[in-house]
């Protein structure tokens, strides 16, 4: 009988820190023995093996009993849970957006190569682990109350719908992240067109000339969106940055478009005259697409400028323009 009690107390002791182990188990031993003696006194006989097991089950699972002595009994407590949930949601949305873009591109271009992109399950699992670990550290060693106090009413986003939504920003950030990874060479896409006799399409030298400005533009786009996400109340700054970013994008593409030659087509099997016609078609197509993109950039800049005007007018106290 006492063997069962010793095994039970041993199981509790294993879950406790060495510093408090002897003290707590001695106290629990006394409580347990007192309870058993009380039951025996009421019954007028020693407990059977089954009754003792019942008494231990009533006392509780050793892991749960020991767990109640932990200073912090939870990994993520109620105070920081909303922040953990918000961070997890935002990060997971960006990662999901990246993978949706990658999957669409994979279907369209037979790429990127699998070796370039880690499994989404792995990335999502790893990110979830890192975020949870970070918040568990705040819970254990940080000051969760301080975290909850770090907000100001005037830092809240405007109630009206004249700013970009959080979901829109997150999706845009995911798409920019994929574009940045491709532009900087971290991931590769198949540049051989399927079903065209080995037709290969490579970027023309004009893109190399504009490599750094385009890279800088993508980084700025990420930062501007991150700022809009983290500081939604700074509507004037966010709209101003969006105007500048869209104008910069239009300017870069305008200069690229001046070159007139955007891709280089080659094929080991197709005749030269066919290739020349294809080359001309591709350049015309790209010329049109870049023109449309410039128009979109300018339209977005105009939209943001209109929003900016509204914010400036409303913050100066005058009624905002409709």
């Amino acid at each position: 009988m006492s063997d069962l009690i010793e095994r039970y107390l041993g199981a509790i002791a294993r879950e406790l820190s060495e510093r408090q182990r002897a003290d707590i188990t001695a106290e629990l031993r006394d409580e347990l023995m007192s309870q058993i003696e009380g039951r025996e006194e009421r019954l007028g006989r020693p407990l059977t093996e089954g009754e003792l097991e019942g008494a231990l089950r009533d006392f509780g699972n050793p892991v749960v009993v020991a767990g109640r002595y932990r200073r912090i009994p939870h990994l993520i407590g109620p105070q920081i849970f909303p922040f953990w949930w918000q961070t997890t949601k935002v990060t997971m949305t960006v990662i999901a957006a990246v993978y949706v873009v990658l999957i669409v591109l994979a279907l369209l271009t037979q790429g990127p190569h699998e070796r370039d992109v880690p499994s989404p399950v792995l990335v999502l699992g790893f990110t979830f682990g890192v975020i949870t670990f970070g918040f568990a550290l705040i819970e254990r060693y940080g000051n969760p109350e301080k975290l909850a106090r770090r907000w100001r009413p005037d830092g809240l986003p405007p109630a009206g719908g004249k700013t970009k939504g959080r979901f829109e920003i997150l999706v845009e950030m995911g798409m920019t992240a994929v574009a940045l990874a491709w532009w900087s060479g971290l991931i590769h896409f198949q540049n051989t067109m399927p079903g065209t006799g080995g037709l290969q399409v490579d970027l023309a030298p004009v893109w190399t000339v504009w490599f750094w400005p385009i890279l800088a533009y993508m980084v700025v786009e990420l930062l501007v969106n991150a700022h809009a996400l983290l500081r939604p109340a700074r509507v004037i700054v966010n709209s101003g940055l969006a105007v500048a970013r869209n104008l910069a994008g239009a300017a870069i593409l305008y200069n690229v478009r001046l070159d007139g030659h955007f891709v280089e087509v080659s094929s080991p099997t197709l005749p030269l005259d066919v290739l020349a016609r294809m080359q001309a078609s591709f350049d015309r197509g790209f010329n049109f697409a870049i023109g449309v993109t410039i128009a979109v950039f300018l339209a977005l800049a105009a939209l943001e400028a209109w929003r900016l005007r509204g914010h400036v007018v409303s913050q100066s106290g005058a009624p905002a323009a409709a």
Binding site: I24, E27, E31, G60, R68
Partner: peptide
């Protein structure tokens, strides 16, 4: 009081508390 008699005294006064809650609270 020690734990067991404290629990009994509380129980006699109409305040039931299980040992799983009492001992960590005492600490």
């Amino acid at each position: 009081h020690y734990g067991y008699t404290l629990r009994k005294a509380l129980g006699d006064a109409g305040v039931e508390i299980d040992e799983g809650a009492l001992y960590p609270m005492l600490r």
